[in-house]
Design a protein around this nucleic acid. Structure first.
Lengths: 247, 247
DNA sequence: CGTTGTTTTGACTTTATTCAAGCATGGTGG
DNA sequence: CCACCATGCTTGAATAAAGTCAAAACAACG
């Protein structure tokens, strides 16, 4: 489902008028159900860049939807290894992984000044009991998260550095389209180090690959914005940089 | 929670007498609730080695619990890339990832002759409505699946070949303990190629690492069974073979 | 036994990492 | 306003790690 258009000033305090409603929790709900949902939602204080929205281990009290800005989620394991699990943009939901045991499994950090909608899980849970359509959308979004993770697994496991970068650029571009934006200037609000961590590369390698893509005329890098000049070349490199296990 | 003991001949047709009940769906349910659950469960025909239990894209009609044997799950993406998502042993549940959109997201293949319990999702769904404890256990198992995937992400992303193999051996050993078995002779019922695919390595590298671990007196490989001779050395190598992203 | 499938080993090549240095950019304070 | 430093990014040369190709050893099974 593609949002017809997105204007930041169209974001209202109510779900029913929000331009992100086709991506977010309200999708698939009737007008009446959306009205019930939006009574739960509050727009919290803005989050400053590099500030944390919630921390791994926290009790789950709210889930969040991004209104404006961007965030990343990070897990840390017993050995202190860090892995970025994903980058999040307007319309994306955060905190779903804590649903099962009422605890956040990752830490969410803002990449730039960010506004979120806050939805208390207790009240959401009760509403889910009442509205089957809401339960379905919630489960759809959870399964989305799961298959996103599987996709990342495939990218990390089966692609070389060029394939990984190209896949990421294509994904970010496609997600812009989903939000009703032009596909082309992808804004890398995260640092090179974040990209490197997410893709399990070193930041030097990230830099080299981006330079090479620019030299080959596939993209144009200007600080944090990347113009996609040749999307077909990007697609080709994304699947060329992959190996298939032989029988 | 650790099962007190496991004898294959103790597996009965009923959940309430099954020696795997502490690992499986019945965990946390009252005696009465288990009786309700076991009315849904049927033990299907045995599955031959390398036979498929369900296929990616199939409509979700049942979920399965392994009684005896072992299986793997595989996803294939648009480009034809394959990734093994996990290996499954007695007490493990299969098919949970299809819950959200009623479609299997992966293919399940038997690694050796395997017996499963079959649970129809339609009837399970109705029972879940009735029994909150069952819903909780189901969600616990789903979140388990999600965090297993995150763990795999960390292993693939942040560990070298030695660290990956050692992590896997430790995990398999710990899961044997969970089932009430001795930790030591881990049986690798999967082929080297499966190990390689799961860990995103080439099978030659898997072989070299196993040889080196054996030469160093950490393990003893005899065809498909691996004795763990020095579990501390294994743990050390598991975390040594990891790199931490610098600030 | 011979055939087939699987695993191990070896020599060589490719790829990405490491370490180190050099550029930008953007703010701060003299 | 400009020197200065901090931060983040790029580039280069040397090194280490894992991948490739090819062959040999091993096991399983009729």
């Amino acid at each position: 489902m593609v949002a017809p258009s997105l204007q930041l000033d169209q974001l209202s305090e109510t779900c029913s008028h929000c331009s992100l409603r086709y991506l977010c929790l309200p999708y698939g709900l009737s007008q009446d159900d959306i009205l019930e949902l939006e009574r739960l939602v509050s727009t919290g204080v803005p989050i400053r860049a590099s500030e944390e929205l919630f921390v791994q281990g926290d009790t789950l009290e709210d889930i969040y939807a991004i209104r404006d800005g961007s965030m990343k989620t990070v897990v840390v394991d017993e050995d202190g290894l860090e892995q970025i699990l994903g980058f999040y943009y307007p319309g994306d939901l955060l905190g779903l992984d804590g649903f099962a045991d009422q605890t956040h499994h990752c830490t969410a950090v803002a990449l730039k000044p960010t506004h979120v909608c806050r939805i208390p899980v207790g009240r959401l849970d009760r509403l889910v009991d009442k509205l089957p359509s809401l339960r379905h959308q919630l489960m759809r979004l959870m399964s989305q998260a799961l298959s996103d993770e599987e996709k990342l697994l495939l990218t990390l496991g089966r692609k070389n550095s060029m394939g990984r970068i190209c896949s990421l650029l294509l994904t970010l571009s496609r997600r812009r389209e989903m939000r009703g934006l032009a596909s082309s200037p992808v804004s890398l609000s995260m640092k090179r180090l974040d990209l490197a961590n997410f893709l399990s590369m070193r930041l030097e390698t990230v830099s080299r690959v981006l330079t090479r893509l620019q030299r080959d005329g596939v993209i144009c890098v200007r600080q944090n914005d990347v113009d996609i000049l040749d999307i077909e070349a990007l697609r080709a490199r994304s699947s060329q940089g992959a190996w298939v296990a032989d029988q």
